[in-house]
Design a protein around this nucleic acid. Structure first.
Length: 276
DNA sequence: GACCAGGTATTGC
DNA sequence: GCAATACATGGT
């Protein structure tokens, strides 16, 4: 088995797996394992900030270095947030220092975040996994890739519904139809400026401001996108209603991920309502 | 068995 | 415009 070991700053696979941006990354015996781009990858943490990946150097450099966004300087984000006037942002950034914005596939992000609305993260993971095991392509280790637009488009809605999609079933079906037919060309959308990309995504039924922002941030690497979810609203209340994001222009989405992880990890501490 | 979940579309004012 | 409401199903 080929492996490649490399030192990566500002990278914590656990933090990434808990960040809610991906739904197919799990803890395993050796560390963490994920499926993306039609392949499984295992990440084994090593001492002193090194990580061992289950692929050779060439594949890592060609594929995974980009996936883990190694060209982006997260140290700069950390430096800026450390000096933020908002103590909540300082704490969130420190807590989330190992989070990176993965460069995931737009199609997969579109479907995952259509499903995500009013579902808990465990429920999202379950629905996504059912979609993959039922309609994805098998890998040699018994797992499955994320299904293609053509595959989902070929299915009766009842087949989609059986994966627990509920009322989101027609949203997923319409997205599959639009992408498979070429009406929505996700590759072409990648070259649009942020505002036009958002407009195009929101033409799809079930894509509102929050889902569009997630697809932009996690699928198109638009780091300015700031998905406003219930965790942002809860956390913002602790900050007097709104976050002080001045100075964070261009990487608001990274800040959002820091806040998301921090708020969820400390839900009992921060939100004493208890029932959350 | 309530209650809530990475929201959105629709309706009514 | 903006507030209220329905929405399928699963996790806790």
């Amino acid at each position: 088995m080929d492996t490649y070991t490399v030192k990566i700053p500002f990278f914590d696979p656990f933090a990434v797996s808990e960040s809610g941006q991906c739904f197919r990354m799990d803890a395993c015996a050796n560390g963490f394992s994920l499926i993306a781009g039609g392949e499984r990858l295992t990440i084994t943490p090593q001492p002193d900030g090194y990580f061992r990946f289950s692929c050779d150097e060439q594949v890592f450099l060609r594929k995974w270095a980009s996936y883990f966004d190694l060209d982006t300087d997260y140290g700069r984000f950390q430096d800026i947030l450390r000096l933020s006037p908002d103590p909540f942002l300082c704490a969130a950034a420190e807590h989330g220092r190992g989070v990176r914005i993965l460069r995931q596939e737009p199609w997969e992000m579109l479907i995952c975040f259509l499903i995500s609305q009013r579902k808990s993260i465990p429920a999202i993971r379950r629905a996504v996994e059912l979609l993959c095991t039922h309609f994805g392509a098998p890998l040699n280790d018994g797992s499955f890739t994320f299904p293609t637009p053509e595959k989902l488009d070929s299915l009766p809605e009842e087949a989609l519904r059986s994966c627990g999609l509920g009322y989101r079933t027609p949203y997923v079906a319409a997205a599959a139809r639009s992408v498979a037919s070429g009406e929505t060309n996700l590759t072409a959308l990648a070259s649009l400026p942020d505002a036009d990309l958002e407009t195009a995504l929101r033409r799809l039924p079930g894509v509102g401001p929050k889902v569009a922002a997630c697809v932009m941030l996690f699928g198109f690497h638009r780091l300015s996108a700031f998905p406003r979810d219930i965790w942002m609203n809860r956390a913002a209340e602790l900050c007097g209603g709104e976050f002080a994001l001045c100075g964070c222009e261009g990487f608001e989405g990274v800040v959002q991920q820091y806040i998301f992880c921090y708020a969820r990890q400390n839900r009992n501490l921060l939100f004493s309502a208890g029932s959350i």
